[in-house]
Design a binder for these strands. Sequence first.
DNA 1: CTTGGGCGTTCCACTCTGTGAAACCACGTT
DNA 2: AACGTGGTTTCACAGAGTGGAACGCCCAAG
Lengths: 258, 258
Amino acid sequence: MVESTSQTIATVERAADVLLLFAKPNNPHLGVTDIAEQLTLSKAAVHRILASLRSRGFIELIEESRRYQLGAASLSLGVAYLARIDVRQIALAELQQLSLVSKETATLSIRTGDERIYVDQIRPEREIVMSVPIGVPFPLHAGGSSKAFLAFLAPDEQVRYLAKQMVSVTDKTIIDAGKLREELAEIRQRGFASSFGERQAGAASLAAPVFDHTGSPAAVISLSGPADRFKDEIDDCVPLLLAATARVSRRLGYNPNA
Amino acid sequence: MVESTSQTIATVERAADVLLLFAKPNNPHLGVTDIAEQLTLSKAAVHRILASLRSRGFIELIEESRRYQLGAASLSLGVAYLARIDVRQIALAELQQLSLVSKETATLSIRTGDERIYVDQIRPEREIVMSVPIGVPFPLHAGGSSKAFLAFLAPDEQVRYLAKQMVSVTDKTIIDAGKLREELAEIRQRGFASSFGERQAGAASLAAPVFDHTGSPAAVISLSGPADRFKDEIDDCVPLLLAATARVSRRLGYNPNA
DNA sequence: CTTGGGCGTTCCACTCTGTGAAACCACGTT
DNA sequence: AACGTGGTTTCACAGAGTGGAACGCCCAAG
């Protein structure tokens, strides 16, 4: 949420809420009444908002059913968002190599506020692979990639985060601030985080931060797989992961000796 | 644009226009005054719109420079848009196979109004490859994928389209309605379209429609490459392309004998 | 170091836009 | 044929959104 108290426009926030409904899983198309009910708006208001978003290509009308769905402008925004994330281009070859050699799924996450999202994933060619949801936010305490961010944030930011009420994502998610603080110290010492079912039941992962020229974590790279299989691969994967993140960090201007 | 005369909300359209500015190429971040000038709005209005979009995650503020950039909600929309396009999942394996065998770039386009956009591409592993811009709209008369759509639209829709004033995309784009009509007839006869620099100078492509259960073109699959190289590969690529589109059409419920 | 320019942010009087209840229309179901 | 539901449109009204102006901050030029 906006930290400042800048004046906002309620009508624009309503329209954004309508768009975000379509971004939720399993909502490929929605009707006017449905949207009105979910957002507690009048049907007239929803209809006008949809007509406005249609005029700019964010929403399309399905003529046959008179229901609405996301339009091509939504894709343009998503593509433009990814295009502005420089670290994606820099990291792509490393993700491909990591996935190829480890035969597991390699991912790249970036931070947005107190959450992080996957912005890329490379899956190996094998029958059973992990697949992560691109664009879905996860809190900074749930899972390997999240903890790899949190451990290397500035100390005051970690203190602020740990003071929050943390919520479980699975029954393995660590939400006790004391336990988490200890684990973050271990992560900083080792240089990487691991997770067994903290973000996704049945999955295991390794994750390490990529630093930028200021020494801040710009992104996180992870390897993950089904827990039963991945647990035997961790020892081999750790050096591969750390080597990859070191190379990407260097390309972002990070000087580890500074 | 909206065909109907539904009442829209000017404030929502303004906000959408602001978002679309960020979706334009080479606009990773923008300032308030810049946006105000480009859209002929007051700085106060732009500021309120940005604050509203920030509150929902569509826009982020870069603290250091006080400039704005797209936020993670933009990615969510883009991902949700792609997720609702069923034909992408169905066609993916075929695109991969096409690219592997032909060693050229395979793409999938869908139609949106009188334009079409690439929603997927698979590039071959070689040094020089074609790369297409995902999410960017192109008119239905410019390039192989566009013509493959136009040729198989309902006759009344083709007449309506050809009555429009058509604009060149390159100096090879066909904009004479008579010539285009003839070519569309040839495309229907052959089952595929080709293009030499009509959408992108120096590029050549082959494209064929994928039909759905109603017999309408649901998508178009293409192969493309640098013109100098691709021109010698066309004869080998045509049967590969047609076989792939036939398989995808069948999976969409198309019965060619109906 | 001082000054000026430009940009982002906030304020406030004002107007016109966006509102929602209600009506209407279309379609599907009984 | 009647009814229920959902989408679309209408209109009187109230307050939300407006933009010009002012303010604060930062940076560049002299």
